[in-house]
Amino acid sequence: MTEEYIYAVARVRSKELGLLNRQDVDQLMACRSYEECLRTLSDKGWGTGESSSAEAILAAEEEKTWAFIHELTEDLTPFQVLLFPTDYNNLKAAIKAVITGVEPQDVFLPGGSIDPEVMLRCVREGDFSALPESMAQAADSAYHTLLQTQDGQLCDVILDRACLLDVLNCGRESKNDILRDYAELTCAVSNIKVAVRACKTGKNRAFLEAALAPCATLNADSLAAAACKSLDDLFAYLAATPYSEAAGRLKESYSAFEKWCDDKVMDLVKSQKMNPFTVGPLFAYVIARRNEISTVRIILSGKLNELDDGMIRERLRDMYV
């Protein structure tokens, strides 16, 4: 039903007026110090009024975004593509905490769809039936792999791949173009990152095959084969795919590549500014909020470390508005 989001989309349109635009980013950049940046953000309504640290302000903004989405819709299924990475990250932390016998403290990320305590209990009891089926299978496999091999990286690879597959499935099942394209882009970009890291660290073909998730726009076998040879071969393969620009950015620097990834997502969701129906604009709003939080984090880190303005600017992401 395209019409069930009419009220929600109208609210999102009004809320979009409060998103940071290029002028706001320039204003933040013009701040002479980190403290001045925090004051400017506070004047724009960022934070809770009580929190003074940058991390607390950014966490409060992330929380506000999800509180708003919860207010708009009870069904968060379309947003699972954004929530799976948090859930899988918490699952990794839970498995590692249980196996190493360390009491988990400040290791869980907030905002996932599954309570980290539930995950912890599942891992402790070795019964993952409380988790969604695909996640339970991956958790069981990662848990036993870590237990038997003590190889944390292998555990991460199993869970990261399962996360990407869940994101892809969620996107495909949503029957919404923007969610499907976002899931595909997320999976392809993650595969590229894995391939580049594996190539640089000299990982073998078996590792790459275990780590790469099959997606429609990148052939995992060809990517793995190229990554096993050399970076130049990897870039040559990417040049023949829809991600040809990625090769150029990777040659430039890894931060340029990461900026390209975020900008690509932004280009994708900008089409939702013209869509008055469907869940797409809500999804785009969450992405836009995450993007501005990420941009503000870059500016604050730059100001805190007294980096040159030019260096900060080249890392700034495109804004939604």
Partner: peptide
């Protein structure tokens, strides 16, 4: 009914 939902969404915020 459809436009009412959209109008209510806008008025909620402003």
């Amino acid at each position: 009914g459809m436009t009412g939902q959209a109008a209510a969404g806008v008025v909620t915020e402003d």
